[in-house]
């Protein structure tokens, strides 16, 4: 049975009634209750939030960060930052929306640091991995040429995504990765719905123009 949310002691605090049943045995505790416990000094209770949102956050971060090991570090950093700022979480949005924001910022800060690193330190995936994950908008049907092209396209998409300005990248990753509605994205990014729509359009236009240009060069 789910435990009812308790209002936090803080004035004006509105409890978030997102109740997610834990995979572990025992009652599911909603986010507001967990946050209240963490705020009252039960650090280990934060582990419930890590368990609850860790997988989704890792998935989101991989949309921003190419290297798996780096992505793992970014997810950890995002949780540590969320813990440090938990007093500032006012409950006006869902905890996960708030966590998204922190994770996206952490990932983009990480990318800024990586861009300053020498390129040799960037780990690329193996050719086998490339072939396994190949995608193509081109004609279906197996052919050696298609395999080579799809690996190339995949790399081009990754490069194009990495080169997108942050405001465009975050919006397209949130949309494509998480399938968030424009309204939800506007809550995460704290911008208007119109801004979300406009940024998404511009992000796609940039990607489209660049990829078409590159694909013409392959022909």
């Amino acid at each position: 049975m789910a435990v009812t949310a308790l209002a936090a002691a803080r004035p004006g605090y509105r409890p978030v009634r997102v109740t997610v049943r834990s995979k572990e045995a025992g009652p599911a505790v909603d986010d507001a209750e967990v946050i209240r416990r963490v705020r009252s000094g039960e650090t280990d209770a934060f582990g419930v939030l890590v368990d609850r949102y860790g997988a989704r956050l890792a998935r989101l971060v991989r949309g921003f960060v190419r290297n798996e090991e780096d992505a793992r570090d970014v997810v950890q950093d995002a949780f540590v930052k969320a813990y440090a700022r938990l007093d500032r979480f006012d409950g006006r949005s869902a905890f996960y929306t708030w966590l998204y924001r922190i994770a996206a910022n952490t990932a983009m800060d990480h990318n800024k640091k990586v861009r300053r690193r020498p390129p040799a330190l960037l780990l690329e995936e193996s050719p086998e991995e490339d072939a396994k994950n190949a995608v193509s908008p081109a004609a279906p049907g197996p052919s050696p040429a298609r395999g080579a092209m799809t690996a190339e396209l995949r790399r081009s998409i990754d490069d194009a995504l990495d080169d997108l300005p942050d405001v465009y990248r975050e919006v397209i990753v949130l949309r494509e990765m998480e399938g968030l509605s424009y309204e939800d994205i506007s809550r995460v990014l704290r911008v208007s719905r119109g801004t979300v729509e406009s940024r998404l359009f511009r992000a796609r236009e940039r990607l489209r123009e660049r990829l078409r240009r590159e694909m013409k060069e392959w022909e």
Binding site: V135, S136, M177, R208, M215
Partner: peptide, 14 residues
């Protein structure tokens, strides 16, 4: 092309 971009982003997430 944009469908491929969406697919690739989701692939990156796992």
């Amino acid at each position: 092309l944009l469908e491929a971009v969406g697919l690739r982003i989701r692939e990156r997430g796992g």
